[in-house]
Simulated scan of single mutants.
Amino acid sequence: MKMTSFKMKKRLDELFKHDDWSTSFNREKDTYRIEWKDTKQGVTINIPNVISKHEQRGEKALDELVFHVSESLKIMHEEHELEGKEKHIFPVIRATSFPKKSKAGIPLAYTEHTAETNVYYALDLGTAYQLIDENMLKEQGWTIDRLKEISMFNVRSLSVEPRKDTVADNDFYFIATQDGYDASRILNEAFLEEMKANAVGEVLVAVPHQDVLIIADIKNETGYDIIAQMTMKFFAEGRVPITSLPFVYEDKKFEPVFILAQNRPVDKKGEKE
């Protein structure tokens, strides 16, 4: 018998019982929220998603939920300094629709990247990370340029050992280490230039979600269809989706493209290239 939202709410009440937290259930939106009593900062959970995961994986799904939510709440309630933690600052790629402010209303530190993506900056805390906001920069006396420089240096230190698949004579390279910064490797210009130098055809790059970077060496028209379908599938399945559009990588720049069934890339005006 399928668990109802009300029964799951009761279960979550037990799991998130804490002297310093308050919980609430929004019946209309079918969501459950846990927040700190003093700051009102918190996490909102989609109950149907929790029920679905519980049906698939049982108690393990709830154990993981409690761990991730507790970690998130803990991070929210800590004071974090950037000075002395330079090695733990990394860039993260997000869609341009991603919020520009934290839930507390503080502007987040970010820079523009492509027509589809922006670069935010994160302080890695081990089991999770915290997005850096403008208040943190002011407190440390840092500029956005310094933040960018440090994070770009660190992203270049991450391993880049892609897995290769060849489909219809087109080569596809995947980086999916699950370290939280797979998509961020699109910012490793030296790596992309190396891939470009070794490519036979046109190089397309995709960041459909946070946990994967796809680089494609497209050698024939079938390759365009494959990368389009692949990117859409990854985008739909990603935990933190970014963009379903691949990019043409040329002259160290990224140009997002729509790809139609005719196998040819089409620019945003709908004209075949």
Rank of each mutant, 00 (worst) to 15 (best):
D13F: 00
D13Q: 02
E14Y: 02
F16I: 01
K17A: 10
D20F: 08
W21T: 05
T23L: 01
T23R: 00
N26R: 04
E28Q: 11
K29Y: 02
D30I: 08
Y32N: 00
R33E: 06
I34V: 15
E35F: 03
W36V: 01
K37S: 09
K37E: 10
G42C: 07
G42H: 04
I45Y: 02
N49L: 08
N49D: 14
V50S: 05
V50F: 06
H54N: 06
E55S: 12
Q56N: 15
G58E: 14
G58V: 14
L62E: 10
L62K: 06
V66N: 03
F67L: 12
F67M: 10
S70G: 14
E71C: 10
S72Y: 01
L73V: 15
L73G: 13
I75A: 14
M76G: 01
E78R: 12
E79M: 10
E79T: 15
H80A: 07
E81P: 01
E83I: 15
K85W: 03
E86I: 08
K87W: 06
H88G: 10
I89A: 09
F90T: 07
P91H: 07
R94W: 03
A95Y: 06
A95S: 15
T96E: 08
F98P: 00
F98H: 11
F98V: 07
F98C: 10
K100I: 14
K101A: 06
S102L: 00
K103E: 02
K103M: 01
K103L: 00
G105Q: 13
I106E: 13
P107R: 13
P107D: 13
Y110A: 07
E112L: 14
T114E: 09
T114N: 03
A115T: 02
A115R: 12
T117K: 00
T117S: 09
T117G: 01
N118S: 15
L123I: 04
D124I: 09
D124S: 13
D124E: 12
L125R: 03
A128C: 13
Y129I: 04
Y129R: 08
L131M: 09
L131H: 04
N135V: 06
M136D: 05
M136P: 05
M136E: 03
